[in-house]
Design a protein around this nucleic acid. Structure first.
Lengths: 149, 149
DNA sequence: TCGAGTATCTCGCTCGGCGAGATAATACGG
DNA sequence: CCGTATTATCTCGCCGAGCGAGATACTCGA
């Protein structure tokens, strides 16, 4: 029942990929004296900056599943390491916007750039229908993971 | 330079999938009073059992990147929760083989089964060439993550 | 202006993981 | 066989990430 069609091989492969990508992030973390949570925080911050919306301390904690105390400690760590700046909200001065520093972006690019480059190379060999299949499968899994709660 | 061809969209999508799968594991962990590391340990143990090779305490710690003290604490936690059994090695009595209990397997299947089922469904709609593309891309990314260290 | 609401921070604590070293079992040269 | 080096795991003491509770600082509606 819980056994292998040929599809299960791909499912295990996807899981292996997530494990390997997790280890890749962990190497980045330990090389820079950071913890897994700090890396997740930087990724969330860069995502927000790419979407051109400001990330406050509270929203960051919510995304990472931390409470306010843990979030403060996290931002303290990142700020002490120079990866992040606290900027008091101009409109609402209770809020604290968190901005990644240029040095943190460089650091991240140095580590993740080569991997991203190779992934992009991989995609070049596929035609439109194959690329659509890859995109469709990934989107489907993302939705499924969101909904199977 | 570090900007968007249409390929970058797929790369970001893959990253989003790993984030979502991570959150799915985290839900499993918190629902069962476990920590992320405990879930990773159970996955490693089930992988080993699927490959029909015994997992010792030391090997488990190495896979997870824990030292011996942390590994002992981890196995203590899992054993206390009834997810795992310690079995002294028969050939080499220094070694301690770790076996997942049937109840842990059931627990894992209850949580991950639906997601796996939906992923398998997704794959059914693709023909052989599309499936090969998905497999090829995932294998390529796995290799790239391993090699970009 | 006052009080309710909201965003962040401080304090004290728990517990996962680490380093160092103890213990137990095996391997191996003499 | 015996003693010593080696290997696998465990024990002890400590550090630090993250939590709960409550303090602080700011905003907004009445």
């Amino acid at each position: 029942m819980r056994n292998q069609g040929p599809e299960m091989e791909v499912v295990h492969l996807l899981r292996a990929v997530t494990v390997e990508l997790g280890l890749h992030s962990a190497r980045f973390a330990s090389r820079n004296g950071m913890h897994p949570t700090d890396v997740r925080a930087l990724i969330a911050l860069m995502d927000a900056s790419r979407a051109d919306q400001e990330m406050t301390a509270g929203r960051l904690g919510a995304v990472l599943g931390l409470n306010s105390a843990g979030t403060t400690a996290l931002v303290d760590r990142l700020e002490r390491a120079g990866h992040v700046r606290r900027v008091r909200g101009k409109a609402d001065r209770r809020k604290v916007a968190i901005e990644v520093t240029e040095s943190a972006v460089e650091l991240g690019w140095d580590h993740f750039g080569p991997l991203i480059g190779r992934a992009v190379e991989l995609l070049r060999v596929y035609d439109e229908r194959e690329t659509a299949a890859i995109r469709g499968f990934l989107e489907g899994v993302r939705e499924a993971a969101k909904e199977c709660d």
